Simulated scan of single mutants.
Amino acid sequence: MAVRTRKARLGRGTGWLGAVVVFAFVVGACSDGGGEGHSHDAGEGGSVSLAHIHGLGVNPADDTLYAGSHHGVFRITGDGAPEQIAGLTRDFMGFTVVGEDHFLGSGHAGPEEHDQPGNLGLIESTDAGQTWTPLSLSGEVDFHAMEYKHDRVYGWDSQTGQLMVSKDKKSWDSRTQVGLADIAVSPNDAEEILATTRDGVARSTDGGREFSVVDGSPVLILLDWPSSDRLVGVDPEGAVHVSDDSGGTWTMRDTVSASPQAITTHGEDEIYIATDTAIYHSDDNGESFTVFQQL
Rank of each mutant, 00 (worst) to 15 (best):
A2L: 15
G139P: 08
L17V: 12
H71C: 04
L137W: 02
W172G: 07
R12I: 14
S106P: 06
Y272P: 14
G99T: 07
Q130K: 15
P260S: 08
V141W: 00
V240L: 13
D101R: 09
H241S: 09
V73P: 09
A86L: 01
H38L: 10
H266M: 14
R230C: 10
L135R: 13
D244E: 15
N119L: 11
D244R: 12
A19V: 07
V153L: 04
H40K: 05
T196W: 00
D101P: 04
T96R: 03
T77C: 03
H114E: 09
V213M: 11
L56N: 09
G121C: 10
G35R: 06
W250S: 10
F23N: 11
T64H: 01
R203G: 14
G207E: 13
V20I: 13
S166E: 00
F289E: 07
A24T: 14
L223H: 08
R6K: 12
D182Y: 02
G43F: 14
P260V: 10
T251F: 12
W225V: 10
L163V: 12
K169H: 03
M93Q: 01
T277H: 10
V73K: 01
C30Q: 00
I76V: 12
G78Q: 05
Y280A: 14
G233A: 03
D142L: 05
G37H: 12
I76H: 03
Q177Y: 01
F25S: 05
L56T: 10
S282E: 02
G28V: 09
T196Y: 00
E287N: 10
G238T: 12
